[in-house]
Design a protein around this nucleic acid. Structure first.
Lengths: 339, 339
DNA sequence: GTGAAAGCGCTAACAA
DNA sequence: TTGTTAGCGCTTTCAC
């Protein structure tokens, strides 16, 4: 009890002394699958409990070179799709005894951030909706820290990536609108330089063309709530108003719906149909009942962890890319679509 | 270049050798405020850059006993108030060179989790909307890990806590409803055993009583979306329907509004007024325009970090409690309230 | 201002 | 199965 005052610094040596074994024995007792006699392990655990000993994960990391920490960089959490990913990823990692170091940072600052977190000997890095400069990608490869891009595929270097099949998602959206007789279409883009927005639009455009619709209007919402509101206003203030909108994500789609209804006095889907992307929790709320292309969060997270662990275990060093299938979730924001 | 292949293990010794100085000099060069000559520092930095050296934060932690990592435990991120807190906390910590280790866990599992994360030598622990068993609180104190409760004050042990002035928030809500002529009131509780729900109701009840309203109906929503929907149904399926609802948080208030409007065919605020708590981003959306009691996220986070750092620096070891002021954000969900 | 030496708490060979 | 020894990469006295 006396040593308890020593500021929590109960070490494996203390335990060893009390249990009458060597320090290695203590280490082994706390290492699953190590070769220790049952009796020894028991003695060690008893001594440990008596002293309130807990292995020091930092010291262990120093020697094993495995921190069991994965860093995740997210630009912001306002878009409700991101919290869903963070939550899932954290839980999934915990299940395997890993922990999540979370960073909030926009793409520009991400490089500087990576510098920092590489000092922490993280076992892997997940970049959500961000890319990596080629210099940094090379650096990560050199250091040997696995990186996987989540929800973005336009890496410059040789980096693994997990994303939805965004092109197919765009096609699905186009088909849903076309099949229900909409012809006067518009697309609300996210950020122009992102693979998600580009791919979704590419699939959309392609499917329209296949059906002989060669033109559609477009506005850029920058993946922001206000940006989407402005985009909606623009689309309806000049030219022929669209009868259907494909919006690059749900967060913007909701902003668009609100603007349409409460500012422009339009009814959804009676006057305008809206289709989103993500299937964020809010899309299911009664006020929106948004028809949307679902991104399958669970499989995406699963694939990300698999890619990470593959690289951690050096099973494969080469960059891989996973495209997760998407599907349409039919609700009430597209006129004529069976719900 | 040859040593680059050595799997990223460039150490301070390597740099020292190349720069022609001692290892200590390298350490000092990378320590802000250490006493090194400009020339030495420059030589060190050049060598470091040439070798692609980055200080090993883990090794540093082992000796300094400061990891610059703060752990945050959150039960879930579905309630949009939480992502806002996580985002702010992460950014605030980054500003001071700290990092956020995020855990998702419900209150029951939190104890087991703390066991784990104490192994990581975190500099502090923030428990969001969760409490701590007295045994664990004692343990944390013994180890010397600062713990602060966020958004909950009912700690058993001697633990610091930051929360809004929930009692006052309840009073404010009551006053807003009373002042606008509502008399047939109801309260939708969160979880009965949480300080937030209890304090908000206490203030509400107290203010009602002060105005001679001794009775109000109540239903429990368990701080969940579906729970709130059920609570709303219950309130309107039997007895005299309320003309105003005070809901313990925005996430539930939104669920209630949706149920009222889309399931029960009631108009808000024409038929029923609704007032929430938090001022979550969604409360401002056009579809809701929810009048609500704001929890000031920024000051709350600031206070939490201050409490943490105080304890880290051993300025104060005693548990402190901070109550952050709240205010009413007037929108359109309360009939008769100037908006 | 700088270097030598010691050691943070742990695990990984290697012998026994 | 167990103990001994060495050392992960860093910071920190303590001399100089």
């Amino acid at each position: 009890m006396a040593r308890d005052r020593r500021h929590g610094a109960v070490t494996s040596l203390d335990v060893a002394l009390l249990a009458g074994v060597s320090q290695s024995a203590v280490s082994r007792a706390f290492t699953p699958g190590a070769s220790v006699a049952q009796a020894t392990r028991k003695r060690v655990f008893e001594a440990a409990r008596e002293l309130g000993y807990r292995p020091n994960a930092i010291a262990r990391t120093l020697i094993t070179r495995r921190s069991r920490i994965v860093a995740m960089v997210v630009s912001y959490l306002e878009n409700p799709f991101y919290p869903a990913i963070v939550e899932r990823m954290s839980q999934r990692l915990q299940r395997d005894g890993y922990h999540l170091l979370l960073f909030i940072s926009d793409t520009e600052a991400a490089d500087a951030l990576l510098e920092q977190l590489m000092q922490y000997q993280v076992d892997g890095i997940v970049l959500v909706s961000a890319t990596l400069s080629s210099a940094l990608a090379r650096e990560c490869a050199r250091i040997g820290v696995p990186v996987v891009l989540f929800n973005r595929v336009d890496a410059i270097g040789n980096v693994s990536a997990v994303a939805s099949d965004n092109v197919e998602g765009g096609r699905i959206a186009a088909r849903a609108l076309l099949d229900t007789g909409h012809r006067n279409l518009a697309f609300v883009a996210g950020l122009e330089n992102t693979s998600t927005s580009r791919d979704r639009e590419a699939g959309f455009r392609e499917e329209l063309a296949r059906h002989g619709v060669s033109r559609y209007r477009r506005a850029v919402g920058h993946y922001s709530f206000d940006g989407a509101r402005k985009a909606a206003r623009r689309l309806f203030s000049t030219g022929r108003p669209p009868d259907a909108l494909f919006v690059a994500n749900d967060h913007m789609a909701i902003a668009v719906m609100d603007t349409l209804r409460h500012e422009l006095g339009l009814r959804v889907p009676h006057d305008v149909s809206v289709i989103g992307f993500d299937d964020a929790p809010q899309a299911a709320w009664d006020s929106y009942r948004l028809t949307t292309v679902e991104q399958a969060v669970a499989p995406m997270v699963e694939a990300t962890v698999a890619l990470l662990m593959d690289q951690v275990d050096r099973k494969s060093a080469s960059a891989r890319r996973v495209d997760v299938p998407v599907r349409l979730v039919v609700r009430d924001s597209v006129r004529g679509l069976a719900g």
